[in-house]
């Protein structure tokens, strides 16, 4: 086949012929079998290439669609992770701070406050009430310790300090804070022991921090 037919057909198929040239070509196409064959061959080649492109694009669409889905699912999983973290934080917050507020403050204050260990028996001298109180304090029977220590008539700073701690652990914050404040104004070694912790913990426990 003459190359000039192919070139004419391709020029027409490029779509940039002037109106008159286009009409001339279409007229010749109807009457010239050689030109018709060249045109059909070029057209077929274009169709085949277009089909190849279509197949290629369809596979790309699937790939892009998956990318989109995985991007979306990644975002979703991120969103779920954030939501789960928020839920855990809220849950922890509610468990620690919101469930029966006063009680939980008290529990926390009690949990985190370092109750001083029971004093040596000798430190309080031979006082029977002091010794019984120490025994109860050691066994965390703070009510019993309070009963004993509050009956001591000559209350040393040491007795006051441990009595206040017993009140604190027995959740009698009013009594505890009065003694602690009283102690803080004195000049004994117990004045230094209590700043600022016990008062802060009492305020925490009573929700007035």
């Amino acid at each position: 086949m003459d190359q000039k037919y192919i070139e004419r057909a391709e020029t027409y198929l490029r779509g940039n012929l002037a109106e008159s040239d286009r009409k001339n070509f279409e007229r010749d196409l109807a009457s010239d079998p050689e030109l018709k064959l060249a045109f059909d061959q070029c057209r077929l080649a274009m169709d085949v290439v277009d089909r190849q492109v279509e197949i290629d694009l369809s596979s790309k669409f699937r790939h892009w669609g998956k990318e989109k889905d995985s991007g979306r699912s990644h975002l979703m999983s991120l969103a779920w992770k954030i939501a789960a973290s928020v839920a855990v934080i809220i849950g922890v917050y509610f468990i620690l701070f919101q469930r029966s507020p006063t009680l939980s403050h008290q529990q926390l204050a009690l949990k985190f406050y370092q109750t001083p260990p029971a004093p040596d028996r000798t430190m309080g001298g031979e006082d029977r009430l002091w010794a019984k109180g120490i025994e109860a304090y050691q066994q965390q029977q703070y009510r019993v310790a309070i009963d004993n220590w509050s009956r001591i008539t000559r209350r040393t700073p040491e007795v006051s300090y441990f009595l206040a701690n017993a009140y604190f652990n027995n959740m009698d914050y009013q009594s505890a804070i009065l003694i602690f404040k009283d102690l803080s104004e004195g000049g004994s070694i117990y004045s230094f022991r209590m700043e600022p912790c016990p008062v802060v913990f009492i305020h925490w426990a009573t929700g007035t921090l």
Binding site: A45, V49, R51
Partner: peptide
């Protein structure tokens, strides 16, 4: 094309890689 996709696919398969490539180079964007 007024040729079915099935027919075009059959032709494509039998055309061979080399012809597919040169036709693509020429006619993808003429």
């Amino acid at each position: 094309s007024n040729l079915s996709r099935q027919l075009l696919d059959e032709i494509l398969q039998r055309l061979g890689a080399s012809c597919q490539k040169i036709l693509n180079l020429k006619y993808f964007i003429m």
